[in-house]
Design a protein around this nucleic acid. Structure first.
Lengths: 169, 169
DNA sequence: CGACACATGTAACACGTTACATGATTTG
DNA sequence: CAAATCATGTAACGTGTTACATGTGTCG
């Protein structure tokens, strides 16, 4: 539901056309998660189907603009005022992988090691991207979010290693 | 792909039937993300379709067991030896929400406040669950993962508040 | 002219999720 | 006996994702 509401949020400050939405979405959230243009159109169709946006004809250049509806604004208000709960977050693949490695007969230390190297590289890439500091505030915050998460992941991996070593004694 | 590989991992230490897989999956990863039993069967069908598991007839009690295939083991080895990259993680709904709030004309402080309260409650619930300490090592590590993440989220929210306040001066 | 950015859209698929239908077995 | 647990499966849907088809305008 992230893209859905992301596009809806962009539409809340005025009518937009598909291509523009992708540009603005990526400008806000950064190039972290590139948004396929096809996705924009399919999502717009679904938003229209659900009555949250309405096609607003075409603008001067003949581009197909969409406008947010009242129902769309309501939905958006609800989105912003409702916190993201643990339960509606997707399953964490890494946590499951480590859990399965611990439970099964897999070399946990090896899995942790591989992951740590990858996360380390990601972290370096992220701090590099942050120093470049091209985008606006929103984009920088998203970048920070990823950094905080990556750091937490490193700490957790250390923790996993320590605990699983301890167990093997 | 988490459930897919999770079930495959469980099957790697011997044939299992559907119901059993759900029990073991939840025993490993905890009640954090409850696994609907229907999901197990649909996932098993898809694994069979892809040749990663094979139906192994029925056991003494007439339960439909599945066995991992060679291709399945290969896939699993690949899964364990390949780190989870940033790019194949799902979009973070909270990050997008805050980014959109910052970009649009939404009361960011309010959104942050609501989220922080929810995350705080989740954190308390998690530490409570950890003290209860019912499960095995794997389950405890998953719990720790969630705790580390929640803590990182709190720090990030603080950071967002500080930065967006600064901007409004 | 050829490449590239702009612009729109459809078809098909993957995974995850829930609701529903169905029945056997166990246990209070 | 009734309720709960065990057990299997299907149908239908939602979102996200990619691949493909198509066309215009612009700039080197």
């Amino acid at each position: 539901m992230s893209i859905r509401h992301g596009l809806l949020a962009l539409l809340s400050s005025g009518p937009r056309y598909g291509y523009q939405l992708r540009v603005e979405f990526e400008a806000s959230t950064g190039a972290t998660w590139p948004l396929n243009i096809g996705q924009v159109y399919t999502t717009l169709s679904r938003l229209e189907r659900d009555g949250l946006v309405a096609p607003g004809g075409a603008d001067e250049q003949g581009r197909a603009v969409y406008t947010i509806t009242e129902a769309g604004r309501d939905d958006l208000v609800r989105w912003f005022s409702t916190p993201v709960a643990q339960t509606d977050r997707p399953r964490d693949e890494l946590a499951i992988k480590i859990a399965m490695a611990v439970a099964g007969g897999v070399d946990v230390a090896e899995v942790i090691h591989t992951q740590r190297a990858a996360t380390m590289r990601a972290l370096q890439e992220l701090t590099r991207a942050k120093r470049a500091a091209a985008g606006g505030l929103a984009q920088r915050l998203v970048l920070d979010s990823l950094i905080f998460k990556a750091e937490a992941e490193q700490r957790w991996l250390d923790h996993c290693e320590a605990v699983s070593k301890e167990k093997n004694r």
